[in-house]
Amino acid sequence: MTRHDLDALRRVVSDACRVLAGRGLADGILGHISLRIDGRTLLVRCRGARERGLLYTEPDDIRLVDLDGAAAVPGELDGWDVPNELPLHTEVLRARPDVACVVHAHPPAVVAADLAGLAIRPVVGAFDIPGTRLAARGVPVYPRGVLVRDRRLAAEMTAALGDRDAVVLRGHGLTCTGASVPEAVLRAVSVDTIARISLDVVKSGGTLIDLPETDMRELPDLGGSFHHDTAWRHELARLG
């Protein structure tokens, strides 16, 4: 991979961090995104001396490290610190060859819904087709409100995730996966949206009911160019 290619991917990850913050899923300085480069290295958002939070992420904040958190090339981490929860990313990447991107965020609605006993369920339909399918597959819960800062805890979280697209971390946040950066981030947005809707329904005195199987079968696949490419351009445009 050329330096130009790597710099372009740094931009993709930094834009994605800003999307998370712009959507309110990673307020302040907490949260990070990683992208697999090859079997031993990944790009990940790190904290530098000018740290201002995810909304202000720049490509230079995205550093190339190995699976143990060491600089992948000399000087790569000079002035930057890897996330405390880097093992959260690397353990998923070790266990899931189908995953290229890992998103870790702290959406308040997702945390609140889980603490209220509300699972992420397919309660919507055409409102968000990819989100409905994600919810129908199941979004498990890692039941420990800990900082996932070592491989032991990360292995627990990864086991809870299993082969699913996302896992809720009780009292903590959310981890989403994807075959690309946009896919992982858009999945996080969908989980957050369903959590918000679920909370609103319950607060209004309503009852959450899963979409009937007959309706699930009617939901079309509108294709990646619509669900991912167009949706991602929208997310980037929202940043202004």
Rank of each mutant, 00 (worst) to 15 (best):
L161Y: 06
D128K: 04
V124D: 06
S225A: 07
T175Q: 13
T214R: 06
R23Q: 15
R217D: 09
R137Q: 09
E76C: 00
Y142E: 02
R233S: 12
P182T: 07
L77G: 01
L174H: 03
E235G: 05
L208V: 07
D163W: 10
P107C: 04
Y142M: 01
C176E: 03
G79H: 04
V110M: 08
D60P: 00
A105L: 01
V110L: 09
L42H: 09
A154H: 07
L219D: 12
D221T: 14
L161R: 08
D5H: 10
G240E: 14
R149E: 15
R144C: 02
V185L: 09
G69Y: 07
D150W: 05
L54H: 04
G240A: 15
V19A: 06
L42A: 09
L199V: 12
V181E: 10
R94D: 01
I197A: 13
A16W: 11
I37E: 11
E218N: 12
A136Q: 10
L161W: 03
L54N: 15
V102W: 00
V181Y: 13
R96D: 07
G79R: 04
L55P: 00
L211I: 14
R133I: 12
D15N: 08
G178A: 04
T132D: 11
A155Q: 10
D114F: 02
R96Y: 08
A237G: 03
P107G: 01
D61W: 06
G69F: 09
P107S: 05
D221H: 15
G79L: 02
T193C: 10
G224K: 05
G205L: 08
R187G: 15
R50A: 14
G69H: 11
G173F: 01
L9I: 12
L93S: 00
D81Q: 04
C101Y: 05
H234P: 01
L30I: 09
R3F: 04
D7F: 09
L88M: 14
D7M: 10
